[in-house]
């Protein structure tokens, strides 16, 4: 799994690429929590994440809760079909704000 962080006016865009699973989710968690600690609102771009497992979902949830506690936001953007299936299984599609595009995501956290 690779990731890219892009600074924008409204916050940061974190784009992951590859699978977020038991092997890689600790990295994803660290990246996201670092951004939260810097007091940033986050758009997580999941367009290039083909697979996310329960540990990956757990990293998203933890970062989301941590961001909200600090008065920041975390939204998901252009979620791939595979990732959306898993979010729906966890009923988290109702918890996260899920935006169609990164632009929409930035508008949502702005």
């Amino acid at each position: 799994m690779k990731h890219e962080i892009r600074e924008e006016a409204a916050g940061v865009v974190v784009a992951f690429e590859g699978d977020v699973d038991l092997q890689t989710s600790p990295d994803a968690r660290k990246v996201l929590l670092d951004c939260v600690r810097q007091g940033k609102s986050i758009v997580v771009d999941l367009s290039k994440v083909g697979y996310i497992d329960s540990s990956g979902v757990a990293s998203l949830v933890e970062s989301f809760q941590s961001a909200r506690k600090g008065g920041r936001n975390l939204v998901l953007a252009s979620v791939s079909e595979g990732a959306l299936r898993v979010l729906k299984l966890a009923r988290l599609d109702k918890v996260f704000t899920i935006c169609d595009s990164v632009e929409d995501g930035l508008a949502a956290i702005g």
Binding site: S54, S55, A58, S59, V61, E62, V86, L89, A90, V95
Partner: peptide, 17 residues
């Protein structure tokens, strides 16, 4: 599932699918 917290989801997924 109402208890939104990290972890413990795997068994739910299995049963679900």
């Amino acid at each position: 599932l109402d208890d939104i917290r990290p972890g413990g989801l795997g068994t739910h997924f299995m049963r679900e699918v």
